[in-house]
Amino acid sequence: MRFLEVSGITLQERGNAVLQNISFTQQQFQKIAIAGETGSGKSTLLQTIAGLVQPTAGEVWLEENRVKGPTEKLVPGTPGVAYLSQQFELPKFLRVEQVLRYANKLSVEELDRLYDICRIRHLAQRQTNQLSGGERQRIALARLLLTSPKMLLLDEPFSNLDLGHKQVLKSVIRDIAEELSITCTLISHDPLDTLSWADEILVMQAGKLIQRGTPAQIYQQPVSAYAAALFGDYNLLTGPLLKALTQPLGARPKKGRQLLVRPEDVKLAPDARNGVNGTVTGVKFFGSYSEINISLLGSSITVITGESGILVGNSVAVSLPTDRVWYI
């Protein structure tokens, strides 16, 4: 049985297509991330799944029950589904334990466990107006979990958080899925948030679902430069450079096709016998790796390498791996 089924969801607003025939399924406990640029329809899709937005066409089914939109019921929302928006609000000037006690439907033991999972025990006596953004978000999340949902929808949960609070929230979301057995779907702009967390990723563009796959598939085999850019830097090779770098691989790209290769997949060699010769034009040091810009055959290419001692003006040879050739 499919836990969640989204079938042909379309939404028209003022003559504009916000969502266009979106369909996908999600199994129970499967972690799905939704990626896309601002305005691609990610949040609207999440709100439609939560029953907070009425689609123009299509249906959402949760455990074989149709999710009703706000025009079909008096109080918008779906039992068993919790949605954490970017604009969450908490009652002001109340202690954290008061906020949670007033909404609590759990036993003392269950509530105690929730405090630990959300890392908020030390905040119980603090007032909500004395909390940081990351702390407030964890309180809002705990408040939603008091209803014992089966599914948790997270709309940009890591936005505007510093590194410390982001790492804590990542641990909280992981524990929510594993310890509370809640199926999670989240939206994030940061590829580091999605690639390491999700079982599958949905890529959206202009209201359309353009790609679905595992993090490795989405990262290594994007369907377009747009999809590639959502998950990191890339080189798009054409013309003489494309021909020169693919000849050793025995590849024959079709006319008009471009080769997409991630910077960390490009290999550096000491001389042109093992690749195409070029000149280093820029070096940026990032601690565990360096980002190298190389000019060759009238084009430029970016390489990420752990090698040290590479300087601007050095002559280097560039080659491609045999297992990371991807044309778009």
Results as ranks from 00 to 15, higher is better:
residue 173 I to G: 01
residue 215 P to V: 12
residue 139 I to A: 05
residue 210 I to A: 01
residue 32 I to R: 00
residue 4 L to V: 14
residue 34 I to Y: 03
residue 184 C to M: 02
residue 41 G to M: 01
residue 281 T to W: 03
residue 72 E to Y: 12
residue 151 M to C: 04
residue 13 E to V: 11
residue 224 S to G: 08
residue 327 Y to L: 04
residue 313 G to H: 10
residue 66 R to G: 08
residue 49 I to M: 15
residue 162 D to A: 04
residue 66 R to S: 05
residue 164 G to E: 15
residue 311 L to Q: 14
residue 15 G to K: 01
residue 171 S to A: 13
residue 161 L to H: 12
residue 240 P to I: 07
residue 293 N to E: 13
residue 55 P to M: 13
residue 60 V to C: 00
residue 208 K to L: 01
residue 142 A to H: 04
residue 299 S to W: 01
residue 129 N to C: 14
residue 25 T to F: 13
residue 87 Q to V: 09
residue 188 S to L: 14
residue 269 A to P: 05
residue 107 S to C: 02
residue 21 N to R: 07
residue 228 A to H: 05
residue 136 R to S: 15
residue 152 L to F: 06
residue 326 W to H: 15
residue 122 H to C: 06
residue 261 V to I: 14
residue 218 I to D: 00
residue 296 L to F: 03
residue 58 G to Y: 02
residue 258 Q to P: 01
residue 241 L to N: 09
residue 256 G to E: 13
residue 186 L to V: 04
residue 91 P to V: 02
residue 54 Q to K: 06
residue 124 A to M: 11
residue 212 R to A: 15
residue 256 G to D: 02
residue 35 A to G: 11
residue 223 V to M: 11
residue 58 G to D: 07
residue 32 I to K: 00
residue 49 I to S: 04
residue 142 A to G: 13
residue 97 E to P: 00
residue 2 R to K: 14
residue 61 W to Y: 13
residue 222 P to W: 15
residue 291 E to W: 02
residue 105 K to N: 02
residue 308 S to Y: 11
residue 80 G to A: 01
residue 252 R to L: 10
residue 101 R to N: 08
residue 6 V to F: 05
residue 262 R to A: 04
residue 267 K to P: 00
residue 71 T to K: 09
residue 274 N to C: 11
residue 27 Q to E: 15
residue 61 W to L: 13
residue 178 E to D: 10
residue 294 I to D: 11
residue 2 R to S: 15
